[in-house]
Computed example of a mutant assay.
Amino acid sequence: MNKNFIKEIEIKNFKCFEDFKANGFKRVNLIGGKNNVGKTALMEACYINLNGDEDNYIKAILQIIRQRDNFFVQNNLTSVYKVLKMTFFYQTTLSKQYQKNLIHAINSNVNQTHFTFQEKLASTTIGYRINNHDFSKSIEVNHFKELIMNDGNAPYLNINNQIKSIRTMGLSDDAIVEYYSALQRIDKESFLDRELKKFDDNIIHFKIINNSPEVNTKSSGYISLSQFGEGIKHFINIIISIYVSENGCLFIDEIENGIHYTQLDRLWEIILTLSEALNCQVFVTTHSKDCIESYYKVSKKIAAKDIAYVILTQLKSGKIHAGLYDYELLENGIEQEHEVR
């Protein structure tokens, strides 16, 4: 396994994790558990930890805050109200999710990272330690306004590396254009088109036209991707994101979002095959029993055994526990119809 893959992690005072440990992660990791148990928070902790350098660490934290609260950007009508609302919500979100002057620690076999927030009237200072090196950065409220006004595309937040994430709302059009360009540079457009035709035989191919994602169909010609259902968009997002995560890591939240259960086998085969070919570690969350069973079935079919199923459970004490099934344990649980959800 790649030395930059996360194999184990310890989390303290981050989101719902007061004191959490998990080990045994593999190349592809499916995370299950009840609602609000911390599946997305676990992926966010891994994402922050992997961005363990001076510049990207702060960007990763701020990206997560923006992504968590992104629905405000879409629902507010006027730019002035949007900025004021988001600035206020940003401050209260920090207070709620990241207590002031409390050290948040995310340590793994890859990086040892800690950070703390100190709020002031016009700015928030983030102090952070990465692998025993101390840094600090002051984020002014005006910078956050710029971030919101640009819908998250402010240049100082761009992270140009092979660590990518797909949230439940999917990728922005700008991200799709950027990732597809990377696909074109390695001449892999035909792979995406072939898989899309298997998904929907009405599709001829996918293209970027005037910086807009478009799908050419037999019945209606070119149609904006935004006019398609969530399934097609999610399918495209996942394939292009794996390619730009080569030698890195990809996080996918709620993988079954918009995907009919009959298409899950095809999707898992793509993920398991490409992640191995491109040396990419993948973390995925799900609520679906069908998704878990498909994950195991396809892994068995193509002999992909570098996998893990992680189930998060909240104990009576409030502590979050991680139960980890490697391929053999998952096989035993499903074949004998044990509960693995």
Rank of each mutant, 00 (worst) to 15 (best):
T92S: 05
K82R: 05
N109W: 00
D200F: 06
I176R: 02
K145T: 07
L267T: 02
E178F: 12
D55A: 14
Q162S: 15
F115Q: 08
S294F: 02
F135H: 10
L121F: 15
E254M: 04
A60D: 04
N150M: 15
H133S: 14
Q63V: 08
D290M: 05
T78A: 10
N237E: 09
D326P: 02
L147C: 13
Y222Q: 09
D265Q: 13
E214C: 14
L157M: 08
S224P: 04
I242N: 07
G32T: 09
L30I: 12
G33C: 04
T286L: 00
N107V: 10
D265M: 13
L330W: 03
L42A: 08
F117W: 04
F191D: 15
G221I: 05
L330S: 03
V73E: 13
L94G: 02
N35H: 07
Y128A: 03
L225Y: 06
V80M: 11
I103V: 14
L77A: 13
Y327G: 01
E8R: 12
Q99G: 05
L267S: 00
D326A: 08
L278R: 03
N210F: 03
L94K: 07
Y180P: 11
K297W: 00
T92I: 03
Y296S: 12
I292T: 10
I238C: 01
I126S: 02
S165T: 10
L171H: 03
Y57T: 10
A60C: 06
E256F: 07
I61G: 01
T87K: 02
F89H: 13
G318S: 00
R185Y: 13
K316N: 15
I208E: 11
G248A: 05
H234R: 12
S288H: 05
I159R: 02
N247L: 03
V28D: 01
L147Q: 08
K297G: 07
I307P: 12
L183D: 10
N35S: 05
K319T: 13
E44I: 03
I139M: 12
H338I: 09
A304E: 15
K305S: 06
G33P: 02
Q336L: 11
A22S: 00
N76M: 14
A182G: 15
N247K: 02
E331G: 10
V73P: 08
S317P: 08
L330I: 04
G33K: 01
K197N: 14
K207W: 05
E246T: 12
Q336I: 09
